[in-house]
Design a protein around this nucleic acid. Structure first.
Lengths: 193, 193
DNA sequence: CGCGGGTTTGATGATGCTCAAGCCCGGTGG
DNA sequence: CCACCGGGCTTGAGCATCATCAAACCCGCG
């Protein structure tokens, strides 16, 4: 059986599950390995699972009509990933989720996930965690207009310095909303100071 | 008593409430009038309610460290509004919510809202509606980088033409992520075709 | 009638993109 | 073991988009 200590710790940041609830919740987990470069889902898929990242890292991105990829977020250990709209409404997603390293994921299918929400205190976790990342996405959206590329870069260096060791720079550029050339120039300028 | 036909119709798009559930749910509603220019909440407030917009329209915005306002969305009739993170975690918000017209809102406080989720099929509505707007926010975030200002303007004209009659143009510019001057120029260019 | 907020228009400038070329480095095959 | 290939990173020159600064205009309202 997979090691569940990490996911337990994460869920317990927002909700206390009784022993029985935890037993039910953990029985829903389907552990899978996702090798580097493989996709958890692609545009057009109807999501059959939401997932918890126990190990590794992935990118979540969308391809616009002009063919440009745009990375919405990177997901590292401890993140919940998926397109909730596609998952709950069982309709096709417009997003891609690709492993950037060999990953270990814990999958939850829809009936089980609904049971976890309705029958255990995981519902509390889910509500709060969703609200939090929703508000965070709104904030990031606003920052895209109010901050310059350099300021967004510095913020990332501040918040997640490891990312530059784990993720190629052209993907980080896409995440920051700029081209690889621009990221390179920003780094050069800053290093000259 | 306020007219509940509209909110009932909206909730029923995603969930069927029994007669008893609807009675409980509607007993939670606190109708209030919010006059034009007044605030439902401001930065620093801990949200005591989420709200449904039965009539009128509002803007939801954030002020960045440089003092620039950035409108995250306009809320019209049928929208649910608030900062869920502030509401569920009872922590201060960074957002402002201001009426742009005389509004009629239906408020829900935290204990009642939690009861609605846990004890009625409103929980289904909430889960799906939240997932939908979360995914929509992510899409809008991506579009901020992939579309030009003109393309975003045309998209708004397509999706919500009435907005130009109801909301001053400098606020629409803020929503589109540009300055009023730029919006004016875009409109001029397009009208010359 | 004049004030003031909102919109328009013009001139200039900064930020980040495009196009293009060169470089670095790890992996592969001879 | 070395030559070659290719992806990713860097650098340069010119360009597009949108911001900034500034002024004029429009119009509703006191």
């Amino acid at each position: 059986m997979a090691d569940l200590t990490f996911i337990k710790k994460v869920v317990e940041t927002q909700a206390k599950l009784s022993i029985g609830e935890w037993e039910l919740f953990s029985s829903f987990i389907e552990p899978v390995k996702l090798p580097k470069k493989e996709f958890l889902f692609r545009e057009g898929d109807v999501l059959r699972h939401l997932a918890f990242v126990n190990k590794g890292c992935l990118r979540y991105y969308v391809v616009d009509p002009k063919g440009n990829e745009h990375i919405v977020y990177f997901a590292f250990e401890g993140w919940w990933i998926g397109d909730m709209d596609s998952f709950f409404q069982q309709k096709p997603t417009i997003y891609y989720m690709q492993a950037l390293e060999d990953c270990e994921l814990f999958l939850f299918n829809l009936p089980n996930f609904n049971r976890a929400i309705d029958e255990t205190a995981y519902g509390q976790f889910f509500k709060k965690a969703t609200a939090q990342s929703y508000t965070a996405t709104q904030r990031r959206y606003a920052e895209q207009n109010t901050l310059t590329a350099e300021e967004r870069y510095l913020k990332l260096v501040e918040n997640k310095p490891e990312i530059f060791q784990r993720v190629p720079h052209h993907l980080i550029a896409s995440f920051l909303g700029i081209k690889p050339q621009s990221l390179s120039r920003i780094r050069k300028l800053l290093s000259e100071k």
